[in-house]
Write a protein that binds this DNA or RNA. Structure first.
Lengths: 234, 234
DNA sequence: CGCACGCTTGATCTCCGTCAACCTGTGTGG
DNA sequence: CCACACAGGTTGACGGAGATCAAGCGTGCG
């Protein structure tokens, strides 16, 4: 792996409190690699041999069943993914695919588990990370069970605007069909839902979204911190 | 708390590897209490002051939004719930309500966090537990995004039969309206879905379900280990 | 230049939610 | 002890949200 990638990984919550020797040892058994867009990194059901850390680019986690597919998460750098499967040493529940050219660090799950046994600080960090991931998934399940497609979209737009620096205009970070799948609807429905939201405080310009009436949009989204904001900080 | 309750709690994966002094200290600051049916234990948004451990009875975790409600999980003894919120010291994302008269151990979250800092074994156990909970929630999200209401019901029936000792007949452990909410549908839809499944390998007798054709039911459910079976053992 | 792919739009269908009536077992009070 | 109220469940009629199928449109790339 490249030395210039280390600081970013080191500053992840996962590794921030780990001792330098352990961190260096983990990095020594890992390797980073660059992948082209649209590449399948692994498939659901595969053995969880590596913790993945996205250094650059973007990755989508999706699930398949009976010929249908659903995007479960969109990963942005720098962050790890599929930690839970590595910890429990069980098969992945989701498949991963690069969306853009991506640089990914592959950290052998066996080494990770060994390091955790050695360093309590690492166990604590993994614990906190997993608690956060669990809560994110609870939010997503609430979102799916309680809101309609249009409400999910409105909430996502607000959240996205918030993440991108609270600007009232931003560019969609993924193709619309991927967003549609993530929000649990078809591309056609997304298209119509976006059109419908034009009366509720947004305007579109290609892949750019302009929020013209935050209050109104927030009202139709039914924005709720217990669904929409992730556990920030800590 | 009662001494006769300790062994069951001790044998939970969470506490099995913990040193006896730490375990006893945790039990000393906890107290168990009996609650009547239909009682709200806490509400989403409340501060997570206690790890809850259900000793006896049954509890339902649900989420509320905009006047709608969805059952997120059904807890059966002996198991802990809302661990993640306690670990991160953030508000609950779900509300809890007893379904039957229930005995619950309340373990102060501050003490739990302190014990984790002291005992690496406990951190490891919490980590494994959270990884499992995360994966359960991923399964639930997949279930919601990929399957129709009828498919979810068929899969749930199979899973339930499996849990209750692979018998081909069992009694619903909760009222149908709760089950409906858990499966993300209305009571009316559940009623119709059950009626519809009579042609697909089940028969009903009040709250008793008889699986008459496991193969057929499994086919309409699209049974999939990556959605339906929990991480068992380990 | 033209094909391919993502997006949109329209027509139709299906699943499921809503509203309302009804049934049935249970528990309560006269 | 019976009558009635009530809650949970079922059934029917209807509507709406969203999926599906099928064109069309625009843009970027070979």
């Amino acid at each position: 792996m490249r030395d210039e990638e280390k600081p970013a990984i080191r500053s992840l919550p996962l590794f921030h409190e780990v001792s330098t020797p352990t961190f260096e040892a983990l990095m020594a058994t890992s390797y980073s690699q660059s992948f082209p867009p649209q590449l399948d990194l692994f498939r659901q059901g595969d053995r969880a041999d590596f913790l993945h850390i996205l250094i650059e680019g973007s990755v989508e986690l999706h699930a398949d069943w009976n010929g249908r597919e659903a995007v479960m998460a969109m990963v942005r750098p720098v962050s790890s993914f599929i930690l839970a499967a590595c910890i429990r040493d069980v098969p992945y529940l989701m498949s991963a695919r690069t969306l853009e050219r991506s640089r990914i660090l592959l950290l052998p799950a066996v080494d990770l588990r060994a390091a955790i046994r050695r360093e309590p600080e690492l166990a604590g960090a993994v614990m906190t990370e997993l608690a956060g991931s669990y809560r994110d998934m609870v939010r997503q399940a609430k979102n799916m069970k309680l809101r309609t497609a249009r409400e999910r979209l409105a909430a996502w737009l607000l959240d996205q605007a918030h993440r991108q620096g609270a600007a009232n205009s931003f560019v969609l970070p993924v193709e619309k069909r991927h967003l549609a799948s993530y929000l649990g609807m078809t591309p056609e429905s997304l298209s119509r839902a976006l059109a419908g939201l034009k009366a509720q405080g947004i305007a579109m310009d290609g892949a750019r979204v302009i929020i013209t009436d935050r209050e109104r949009l927030s009202a139709t989204a039914g924005y709720d911190p217990l669904i929409d904001s992730s556990d920030e900080g800590l």
